[in-house]
Simulated scan of single mutants.
Amino acid sequence: MTERADLLASLQRHRGFLLFTVRGLSDEQARLTPTASALCLGGLLRHVATTERSWCAFAAGGAEGMSQVEVDWATGFAMPAGATLADMIADFEAAGADTDALVEKLDLDAAHELPKAPWFEPGASWSVRRVFLHLIAEISQHAGHADIIRETIDGQKTMG
């Protein structure tokens, strides 16, 4: 397997865990926040889609590109009123397809200086490769959150 194929396989695998977690749920169940956190399954799909879009914009165009993606920091983990789980899944899948297309075409060694933020070392740069590795970690982490939420809702276990 090539490096690009490995990256794609890992991204798709972890997205698959997240999609499996929401399988068979109603819209109402996707909105539930049954744990101590404010996370819901529909909101996790929304957040991951936004995260993929934001980091892919960075991979393609640096901090300037990333700044073009609107991120709702206040309610980004919520499922919007009127949205359905099918809407959240379609958006999540579209973001993933866009990411996969970039994995196929971007120079993995290209690097961009990270945006100015208190959580990034000033002047630090990330390669496109590191961005995709970061997305794998993000998706995996949120798939774990989703598994706990789903198990709390109805006992289904995705990862164990």
Rank of each mutant, 00 (worst) to 15 (best):
P115D: 02
K105S: 15
E93T: 10
A101N: 10
P118W: 13
L114V: 05
D109W: 07
K116D: 15
H112D: 06
D98V: 14
E113M: 14
D107T: 02
D98N: 14
A94W: 00
L106I: 03
A101R: 15
D91H: 09
T99Q: 02
A94C: 01
K116V: 15
E104W: 08
F92C: 13
H112E: 10
E93N: 13
F120S: 04
A95E: 08
K105G: 06
A97W: 02
E104G: 11
A90N: 08
D87C: 00
E104I: 09
A101D: 13
D91T: 12
D91M: 09
E121V: 15
T99W: 03
E104A: 14
F120L: 03
D87H: 03
A90S: 12
D109R: 14
P115E: 00
A90I: 10
I89L: 11
D107M: 03
A97R: 04
D107R: 06
P118L: 07
L102K: 13
A86G: 07
D87F: 02
L106D: 02
P118T: 13
A111N: 08
A110M: 08
A111D: 07
W119V: 06
A97L: 04
H112S: 09
F120W: 07
W119I: 09
L102G: 04
K116L: 12
A90K: 08
L106C: 03
P118V: 11
E113Y: 09
E113H: 10
A110Q: 09
A101I: 10
I89A: 05
A95H: 02
